[in-house]
Design a protein around this nucleic acid. Sequence first.
DNA 1: AAGATCTTCAACCGCATTTAA
DNA 2: ATTAAATGCGGTTGAAGATCT
Length: 256
Amino acid sequence: MARTPYTDKNGVTKGTWTAEEDMRLAAYVAAHGCRNWRRLPKYAGLARCGKSCRLRWLNYLRPDIKRGNFTKEEEDAIVALHESLGNKWSIIATHLPGRTDNEIKNYWNTHMTKKSQPKPTTTDPAQPIVCSSNDSTSIDNSTHETHFEVVVSPSQNDQFYLSLPHTSPTTDSPNAFSSSSVLMVNDIYQSDFGGDFWSQPFLVDADDDYPKREIYSTSTTDDPYFGPLYEGDNDYMLWLHYGLHNELVQGPAPVC
DNA sequence: AAGATCTTCAACCGCATTTAA
DNA sequence: ATTAAATGCGGTTGAAGATCT
């Protein structure tokens, strides 16, 4: 998985590093530190650009680099941090000692993106979620806004994915809603949910003493798929992906 | 066995931000 | 305050290895 080494028109070497180059770079940094990457190649006797030297040092030669497969704990941390930070790989890397931003980014792109798109299926075990009592649910008929609240009992680092298939439990929910509908989720950690709602997990951290997720649906019309909830309209189902990625818990949304 | 296709990850590139002059 | 240089970041690429046909 290496790029064939070559020398560009300016005499700068590109591509995979050789063992000798590694040795020169490591020896120079050990002796002089790495305060000026631009000039370092010249002083270290390397035909590389400073950027390349910096990258090689940070991603491979640094003595505190941790090698080997990511542990379950590291994977969980990456998922959680990515949820709150997005693609801020360098910041995420600061929370994973010995791991580089490049390594985490690669790991995410090759392993995690596949896991981050959970879909409900009828084969998943269905157990009732704990919903709040009806008195927390309200409707504003003038704005067609429905408000209900879901109370869950998360444990540390649990993550939640929410979807609301309307017509049947087999509906692949995210596509069942019209674009005129807006689903918002507010909780004490996230007041404005951006990005891809359907694939973004909620993180419950150790300090979450208020495991409530308030779900608002707003619609400008009586959208048959996502209009306001009416009394007796109990075929709205709330799907709650519970735990890491795959476990699914299902239950009815509160009836207004 | 061999060619095609997929997966992985080191390294590159362009751009944004920070630092130094 | 301004500008240029240096650094840092994140997206993308390309080639080796793995897997499939």
